[in-house]
Design a protein around this nucleic acid. Structure first.
Lengths: 217, 217
DNA sequence: AATTATTTTTAGACTAATCTAAAAATTATT
DNA sequence: AATAATTTTTAGATTAGTCTAAAAATAATT
């Protein structure tokens, strides 16, 4: 598989979580940063290779084969992110871009040895689960901070959005995976929250709260 | 720079060690596994980008810029090889192919952090020197085992040839970097050697001896 | 339901990197 | 020095991935 094909498969995988139907040509184009016509061409090729099932004008879905393939790429991406943060001391806002390149390194043996070297981590630095060697992904119960109940203790377990700007905001406000969060109050006007974060009181906007995953206890 | 351009630059760098004049089109074609006509096309492009100086029919040499570029690629290749052997427990005959991919990962910061993580190694698993961040390469005094004097103690410091078959031969005969070698006798007929290797007496062919670098004491 | 707007596909063209076959230049040999 | 052999370059074609512009299909709106 070429790097380009892998990128399309990965994008289709991620987008398929947001739609019950097939993934649309335009949404793929936006993510891959290309034109819709280029996407159509690629979809035909991926369909020929049995990686997606594609009906003209109806969008695409991954086949079983394509799904496995996507999970293998995601596995590589997330393991490399763990390596970059845990071993090379990168911060979590720096690793995505580099992992975008590293995820295309071919060797199966390499990725499994890396997995072992890292101690078979279950989650990447953003709290996303890492598929295991068979493609199994742990599903953990989580919800958005914007849906949190008042006065209940939660733990930050992930970020919905991994944009550098957002991660930098979190760094600046000392919010990280494992942070303890309790919602003290919620404004009616803008849905902003006053929260107890690791025993400090701060105020955050609804947009932030809508991008933080939390879990009880 | 594209991966293809990087590969050409790297090959020209390696071949330039074997010729005083420019590197020939055919020798590049052989190394890159392509046709001479493709090489000519690429040489024109690299020349336009000031990475090589190229005169039709006269072969190429790297410019200062191309030379720096080549050393950066070699640095990446060799650092990744150290990582694979030291951290992921690969054997030295497995790492070249994987490092051929890893050497094209772009991030400068990544490679410098990797360098630090590995403890700023000076040599790769085959005994080849690793260019430092500025492109400086340590030059150590070494000669081929085929040129060794009788009854002098040497240490194996590198391999001239990194082919998998050769490295496997060395594994099978417990020859590695750091092995102590003393030539006991040399056959006149085929130049094969009887050597004392780490206190064991074995016989090796001239072809092997011509591909092992050694150093005194 | 007809019209408009949007999305998607097709058709044809472009670039990078490659190829084959033929021409040109260099090197080797008589 | 002339000829033969080899190397290198040119010319033209091919493939993957992309693009623009126009056509076709679907979705939204009146």
């Amino acid at each position: 598989m070429t790097i380009s094909e892998e990128n399309y498969i990965k994008v289709i995988f991620h987008l398929s979580h947001f739609s019950i139907k097939g993934v649309s040509t335009n949404s793929i184009a936006e993510m891959v940063v290309t034109k819709a016509s280029s996407v159509t061409d690629m979809l035909k090729k991926l369909s020929d290779r049995q990686l997606v099932s594609y009906q003209k004008y109806q969008g695409v879905t991954l086949t079983e084969k394509g799904f496995l393939c996507a999970k293998a790429i995601v596995r590589k991406h997330r393991l490399w992110e763990v390596f970059l943060v845990e071993k090379l001391d990168f911060s979590w806002d720096e690793v995505h871009e580099i992992a975008e390149e590293l995820e295309h390194i071919k060797s199966e043996k390499l990725i499994n040895k890396l997995d072992a070297f890292l101690g078979f981590p279950a989650f990447d630095p953003h709290g996303d689960p890492i598929p295991d060697i068979k493609g199994e992904i742990i599903k953990i119960d989580k919800k958005l901070l914007s849906e949190a109940k008042i006065d209940v203790e939660y733990v930050c377990v992930g970020v919905k959005n991994s944009a550098v700007e957002f991660l930098k905001y979190l760094n600046n406000h000392t919010i990280s995976l494992g942070s303890k969060i309790k919602v003290i109050s919620k404004e009616e006007f803008d849905a902003s929250l006053t929260i107890n974060l690791n025993s400090k009181i701060i105020s955050i906007s609804n947009k932030i709260a809508e991008n933080l995953f939390i879990n009880e206890q």
